[in-house]
Computed example of a mutant assay.
Amino acid sequence: MAERTEERTRDADTQSDGDLGVDVGTTESVESDVAVGESHDVGSSAAEASTTESGSYFSLRALLFAFGAVGGGMVLGGLIPLVPFTELVGILLGGFVYGLLASERRYVELGLAGGVSGGATAVLSLLPQLAAGLNGTRLFAIAGGVGLVLALVGHHFGRDLRSGLTKDL
């Protein structure tokens, strides 16, 4: 708290001296670049900063966390005895928790994790029937599609709740 008060007094002192509150170090570097004759394109530096800050559309680290969230939800859903398809509800729960905790939108990673986890679980749980003649490719596609949709819906509602909780009133 004392640091915050100290910052306010410093800011008030600098503004009372005729300063407009602009960071002096930033303006001096721009002025020195122009004075030397170098062109300084402010738009390109802002674009470079935005691409480095926002990251890319796909992140391997986020994919691993998405697999962890979806897998954890499936384990929790599988703990409910005698109720079928609770692993699918676990995919929805994992996507919801991931959307609630993640600071960025990661629909691609979560959709991939939900689809692969849902398809693999369906195929592995019905492995004896696959040997008897059940079509495994079709089963993987259907269960993967359901897992993908559930993960994306869960992520959307988790992000929606997060934005509602962090929004100023």
Rank of each mutant, 00 (worst) to 15 (best):
P81R: 04
G43I: 11
V24W: 06
M1H: 11
D23T: 15
V22F: 14
E53N: 10
E6W: 04
G145S: 14
D23C: 12
L110R: 06
S59D: 10
V42M: 04
L139N: 03
V75D: 02
N135C: 04
V123Q: 02
G55R: 09
D23S: 15
D33T: 05
I91L: 12
F157A: 09
G68S: 07
T9Q: 02
L152K: 09
A2V: 05
G43H: 09
M1W: 01
E38F: 08
E87N: 10
A47P: 00
A35Y: 06
I142C: 02
S44Y: 08
L76M: 11
G115S: 03
S163V: 08
A62D: 12
L101N: 04
A120I: 12
S103T: 09
R10D: 00
A66T: 10
L152T: 07
V83D: 04
L148S: 06
L79G: 05
D160S: 15
L76C: 03
A102H: 09
F67R: 02
R106M: 08
H156I: 06
L124T: 12
A62G: 02
V70K: 05
G37W: 06
V30L: 10
Q15R: 14
D168T: 02
S59K: 04
L165W: 09
G136E: 00
G99Y: 10
A132T: 11
A12R: 01
G94W: 08
G78A: 07
G118R: 03
V146P: 00
E7S: 07
L127C: 00
V146S: 04
R10Q: 03
L92V: 14
R159T: 13
R106N: 15
I80S: 03
D168K: 02
G154H: 12
G115Y: 01
F58M: 03
T27C: 02
R106W: 05
E87W: 12
H155T: 15
D19P: 00
D23M: 11
S117D: 03
V30Q: 08
V22E: 14
G136C: 00
D160A: 15
S54K: 14
A62M: 06
A35I: 03
D160L: 15
M1V: 07
L79P: 00
L79V: 00
G18V: 04
L112T: 12
L139S: 03
G99L: 11
Y98R: 14
L148E: 01
A122I: 02
G90C: 08
E38N: 12
S16W: 05
T9V: 05
